[in-house]
């Protein structure tokens, strides 16, 4: 599903390149649950952003489902990821001005799905995550765990093939964290490919596969 070939990412500091990612080769198959680990500044999030097409690599090739992402224009990439990729963030990143229902609905709006169809899809996922009663609340009225649940619901609403999670449990207590990880495992069983960035060995253990990063390189395990 994902093929990274000699991916490097650098920024110029005082005229000299400062590598964030260097020479990454990675192959992730459909249905995998991959955890990316590594110390702060090792390039975990940058790698995730590149995989999620939110950021460009400075060098290298990236194939997503066989499509050469590195040659695409922003618009084409956007069309690709809105169809196949869902994002979950450490800080939940819900739109404060929208209700739970509207937050979950947002991705569907950008996929030009009809209103009636949207209603059915949102109702389904609310039901599945058991947050029907909260659909008219605003994010600030929810606990962290509940907000992250909404964040995941939003990521999944468009039925993506790939879920990218950047420290999804980082702002949660351990009980809430476990619930989220259990949900991820469940989703993975249902066929969603998951890539998560985490600091926690325990959470990494939920995955089928761990990638360790250090100073922008993949550490061989």
């Amino acid at each position: 599903m994902i093929d990274l070939k000699r991916i490097s990412k650098w920024v110029n500091v005082g005229g000299k390149p400062n590598f964030i990612l260097k020479d990454i080769n990675l192959h992730i198959k459909e249905g995998e649950f991959v955890s990316i680990m590594g110390p702060s500044g090792s390039g975990k999030s940058s790698l995730l952003n590149i995989i999620g097409m939110l950021d460009d690599a400075s060098e290298g090739e990236y194939f997503f489902l066989g499509n050469p992402v590195h040659t695409m224009k922003e618009k084409q990439r956007s069309l690709l990821y809105k169809q196949y990729i869902g994002f979950v963030f450490q800080a939940y990143h819900l739109i404060d001005e929208l209700t739970v229902y509207e937050n979950i609905e947002t991705p569907l709006i950008y996929q030009n799905i009809k209103s009636s169809e949207r209603q059915a899809m949102v109702a389904d996922i609310l039901d599945r995550f058991q947050i029907v009663g909260k659909k008219d609340l605003f994010p600030t009225q929810l606990s962290g765990g509940q907000q992250q649940l909404v964040g995941i619901a939003r990521a999944l609403i468009a039925k993506p093939k790939l879920l990218l999670a950047d420290e999804p449990t980082g702002n949660l207590n351990s009980r809430q964290g476990e619930e989220i990880m259990d949900l991820f495992k469940q989703l993975n069983k249902e066929g969603v490919t998951i890539i998560q960035v985490t600091h926690s060995e325990k959470n990494a253990g939920y995955g089928s596969h761990i990638i360790n990063l250090l100073d922008g390189r993949v550490e061989l395990t």
Binding site: L54, Y81, F87, H93, D96, T106, P107, Y110
Partner: peptide, 16 residues
């Protein structure tokens, strides 16, 4: 900014 980021991640095109 956050809203825009989320909308983009949710698939919004720049023109949208």
């Amino acid at each position: 900014a956050k809203e825009i980021g989320i909308r983009k991640v949710s698939g919004a095109l720049r023109q949208e």
